[in-house]
Design a binder for these strands. Structure first.
Lengths: 213, 213
DNA sequence: ATCGTTGATATGGCAACGCTATGCAATACT
DNA sequence: AGTATTGCATAGCGTTGCCATATCAACGAT
């Protein structure tokens, strides 16, 4: 070996790439290299090219999303928790629109699929608790996936400008309610859980602190 | 005036651009011009540039989608019809993946928003009939929009390869069911309507014939 | 019928993009 | 200490979208 592969260059490249996205500037090879104080070759030694860098940015986006979801604590009402997770998901996407869109950009293969699956796992766990409490009859994996699908569709259309931003707040809770009702929850109690769960928001301090770690 | 703007060139450019997308080849200016038997300037005279051409392709995609939705006929069960519209939407997206993704590609401004709104209008009308029949209590526009959001989220994740193709069939009906239950429909009857409606498929003959018109 | 006007297209070139061959410098093994 | 190996800077290639210029066909006016 020689010239040990400095990991700081790698994280700096991902950092600057994410910064370019949040600044709404085009994510170009030369721009990333210049902002990172290096040359274009660094991207190739560390990521093998521009697609590799994008993959790393995606993985970073999922990592930050998982951190955000970890800020949602469990309560004695799992349906409330599931709604709170959905709200956190949508709010995170609204807060970081370009990064969220980059997370689903290319289509094939994340750098580390475990990171992406971990977010869904959090939803699945809450759905499993809801079934244990007798609230849901459907499979937890199915309920979690459908809530994710609904949230993603809403977020995607809002971030693309097809739907106004207010739509996220206006329809997010109703979409979650539908998923839970289809899972078998009792309507009245479900409405109450979704209402309180969707309104609950973890303080931003913790998630940001852990995000930088 | 001289050399009147030949509309055949315009439609040929859009046609070849859509053909490139369905062939999974990159949509480049030169490729479109060559396949259309003209030069790159034609794209600029007719669309002002590559973004304009993409806009036109999007509009064409929505036009074909509306034609597909028009193949779904009304029955005496509006909830059945709404589910059938959702199924037609998802199946159309699966059948034309690149065109569907292009429809929501850039974010700002369709060439003709009316064409895009017409698809949603079909859903809204069915939801309004459902309310007139006493099945729904929620606003028809809200129900239609939420079903659209669910279907789009499902389709988007499947077309990106995040979810397997089978997920579209496996979860599409359940997502529609959730939207209708949240709208206030009675669970048992709703399940029956969704089951039959989602399975119903208009024959492809008519839609294709009208698509070429 | 002829000619001048007009606008669409063909050509060629520009800047920027992703990518890579080459050379150099700095490190780790022997 | 000597050598090999690895990361990075430089420079250049092919392709992209875009545009300035020139050419040419089609129409209206006379």
């Amino acid at each position: 070996m020689a010239r040990p592969s400095d990991p700081r260059v790698r994280v700096e490249l991902v950092e600057q790439a994410a910064a370019l996205l949040t600044a709404d500037e085009p994510l170009t090879l030369r721009a990333v290299a210049e902002r990172s104080g290096t040359s274009t070759m660094a991207v190739y030694t560390h990521f093998g090219g521009m697609p590799g860098l994008r993959q790393a940015v995606r993985t970073e986006g999922f990592r930050r999303l998982v951190i955000r979801l970890e800020g949602v604590d469990d309560t004695e009402d799992p349906v409330h928790d599931l709604a709170a997770l959905g709200a956190a998901y949508v709010r995170h996407g609204l807060a970081h629109p370009h990064l969220y869109r980059a997370m689903f950009d290319p289509g094939i293969g994340l750098e580390n699929e475990e990171v992406a699956a971990e977010g869904l796992l959090r939803l699945t766990r809450a759905a499993a608790r809801a079934r244990d409490h007798g609230r849901f009859q459907a499979e937890p994996t199915d309920v979690a996936l459908r809530q994710w699908v609904s949230g993603h569709g809403l977020l995607d259309l809002v971030l693309r400008g097809v739907l106004p931003t207010e739509s996220a707040a206006a329809h997010g809770a109703a979409l979650a309610l539908g998923a839970f009702l289809a899972a078998g929850d009792e309507p009245e109690r479900c409405r109450a859980s979704v209402r309180t769960g969707w309104a609950a928001t973890p303080e931003d301090g913790r998630q940001l602190a852990r995000c930088r770690a």
